[in-house]
Design a protein around this nucleic acid. Structure first.
Lengths: 137, 137
DNA sequence: TTATTAAAGGATAATTATTATCCTTTAAGT
DNA sequence: ACTTAAAGGATAATAATTATCCTTTAATAA
């Protein structure tokens, strides 16, 4: 659980001015993990009722450029954004749409893929789909 | 290499009328494997100069609904579409942007993911990124 | 083969999503 | 506190996608 000061320093490390609106955006992403544009706009609006949706877009854009955040593309859903952190994969629940991070051992898969395809591989975007434990009760 | 008649019958199986424009779209996807909206519009326009871009969108929409085609979401790129076929993964070359299909053994990964997360898994979208053999020469 | 009909195409309007612009405010660093 | 580049808000502009309306046509059956 990061506090605001920690988030602020992190923003500054990425050469992003730590404005209240931006702090709120970063904090929302930190708390909720994955959010799409609309969810972010809705939530930040609670705290900053006059915020412009353009500010949300501008922030997403520059935060992506600086790699402060990353975009996660999910089949049949809107893209969500997350704070940049250690490489990981995602699982989506097809019932409640919850997205969770998962740390997968991908070395073997990548080695095999590289051998089959003759590609030099360096990144993997893995999104698994299923039903979460809560929804399958 | 499928012929037009084969594609036509396939369309009919999916309850899609085999119009010339639609046949052309399906044929383009068959030949090129993966195409985004713009590429599809451009290519189909060669054969049907008066086709409306709305027709491209309408076809993509209904073909997705009927699962005649599938959407492939790729990090930092526009979505591409492909004919529905046996489950497979994708590799993208970061130099020439080529997208190729790859058949990966995912059982082990899924089993492990399922154990870690307690999700009941049923689908996986895997997009690997690297440099293709041609581009790494 | 022709007749019938739902589906599809084309043109274009409408909507939605995203980006650009302009001007004001403010955070960061002296 | 002062300076300045960066960021916010409002809104216009652009891009992407969908809806509408009317005409045409592929599929099916008589």
């Amino acid at each position: 659980m990061k506090n605001i000061l920690e988030i602020k320093n992190n923003l500054l490390k990425y050469n992003l001015k730590a404005t209240p609106q931006r702090l709120c955006i970063a904090n929302c992403l930190d708390i909720h993990g994955h959010m799409n544009v609309d969810e972010l706009y809705f939530l930040v609006s609670q705290e900053f009722p006059t915020i412009s949706v353009a500010t949300i877009y501008k922030n997403i854009k520059i935060m992506l450029e600086r790699v402060f955040i990353k975009e996660v593309k999910i089949p049949k859903q809107k893209s969500v954004y997350e704070l940049n952190k250690a490489q990981h994969s995602h699982i989506v629940c097809s019932k409640c749409n919850k997205i969770v991070d998962i740390q997968l051992q991908t070395e073997e898969l990548l080695r095999s893929a590289s051998q089959i395809s003759n590609f030099t591989l360096n990144e993997s975007a893995i999104v698994l789909n299923g039903v979460c434990p809560e929804c399958s009760k």
